[in-house]
Design a protein around this nucleic acid. Structure first.
Lengths: 220, 220
DNA sequence: AAATATGAGTGGCCAGACCACTTTCAAATT
DNA sequence: AATTTGAAAGTGGTCTGGCCACTCATATTT
């Protein structure tokens, strides 16, 4: 009858216990030996459940200290999943396009939010452009992503960035810097359609340099 | 020194092995004892990694048979995550919002591509609406995602769907079906802005029902 | 009072042992 | 000859007990 896997039951039991005992994020949960005793299971089986929850980012373990309910704001599972999602060689276009999806969406969000658009960040960008320091597209876009406020979208974007073969490694040129000024103005005025158009044009312009196809990501 | 957890390395090793050996979904991966031997780790430690991957729905184990690469159609993900992760309002909104990002983007792509817009799928949708059968939002959106042609975006969307606690598990009502007709027309005519507006309105309308368990968690 | 050593508690990892189940294939039966 | 049966091998599922590395509070020494 009860064919369900043991460790899945344990996952459920732990969840119930956490709820029952009203354990809050950051709090410590009982030790492995204690839990195994209480749930009447072997410690290794219990550990399988705990490790699963850890991989999901639901709990956090510190050797010598204990196991703690995680502040699940770290979507660690996205990392793990991404390595599997991208296991087959996706076309670079899909990665690139999906990244752009998140970027454009962030711009939309920013334009729709007057509080964001009225910030002084645009002036700060202009200052950075005027200075002769290196200016990277990724830095600029990342700040846009952060401004949009969707942390999950930011996380996904960041992952895609690492997988997209780094088309934007080099700093933007003087010409590309000038192209950015109208975009900043559009953002400031919450002119969404112009902002998106300008952004896409700018991105495609810069993208010209991404020719490497030998993508042997050896990272995590 | 060795800060990284062993079982996380194993997760990575297994992924690499799957990629290296070109194991396809549905195929069998080496037995636990074999893997433990090959990776030079204890079997219980290896199992911690395997169980984690199983909870994620990436692999599937059958007692007496072996372990198999899964066909991304997992179920328990929903339960676990919705009871753990989605207690946080912000995360919930992020998942929901990120999903919408991909959905809207798909609509944009479809509207920009005349070949897609001229297809007969719209008529097929209308037929399905007229019939008295159940019509689910997810099915409709999934087809849109497929039509857009970005497989990576589709995969991400599919994952987010599982994570988002199923706000759309019920079939759309008659009223909601009627709201869909103008959207189909807009898609057919490649009227992007209308299509997006109608889609968002429609989605928000349907979403009304997903206000169940009141969550405290006003922490931070 | 400060620095140090100790010990209890914790997670990390492993080896070995059963058990339950599935598949296989050869022996036994028909 | 065809079928049935059953033993063996292989697999995941679980438990026990042990050892290590690390943290922290406490006791001890300086």
């Amino acid at each position: 009858m009860n064919q369900s896997k043991r460790f899945l039951d344990i996952v459920k039991d732990i969840r119930d216990m956490i709820r029952r005992e009203k354990i809050k994020p950051g709090n410590r949960i009982p030790s492995e030996r204690e839990l195994a005793e209480k749930l009447q299971v072997g410690r290794s089986t219990l550990r399988e459940a705990l490790r699963s929850l850890e991989l999901l980012g639901l709990i956090e373990t510190r050797r010598g200290e204990g196991t703690f309910l995680s502040d699940h704001r770290n979507h660690q599972l996205v990392e793990v999943l991404s390595t599997f999602i991208l296991q087959d060689k996706q076309s670079q276009e899909d990665v690139w396009g999906t990244r752009l999806i998140h970027e454009v969406s962030a711009i939309q969000t920013i334009c729709q939010n007057s509080k964001l658009a009225s910030l002084k960040v645009w002036d700060s960008f202009r200052n950075r452009l005027n200075e002769n320091e290196s200016f990277y597209r990724e830095d600029f876009v990342r700040e846009l992503m952060v401004l949009s406020g969707n942390r999950l979208s930011l996380k996904i974007w960041f992952l895609l960035q690492q997988y997209s073969g780094n088309p934007y490694q080099e700093p933007v040129t003087a010409t590309e810097k000038e192209m950015l000024l109208p975009l900043l103005a559009a953002l400031e005025q919450q002119d969404m359609s112009s902002a998106i158009d300008l952004f896409k044009t700018w991105s495609c312009w810069i993208q010209k340099g991404r020719m490497q196809n030998g993508n042997d990501s050896r990272d995590l």
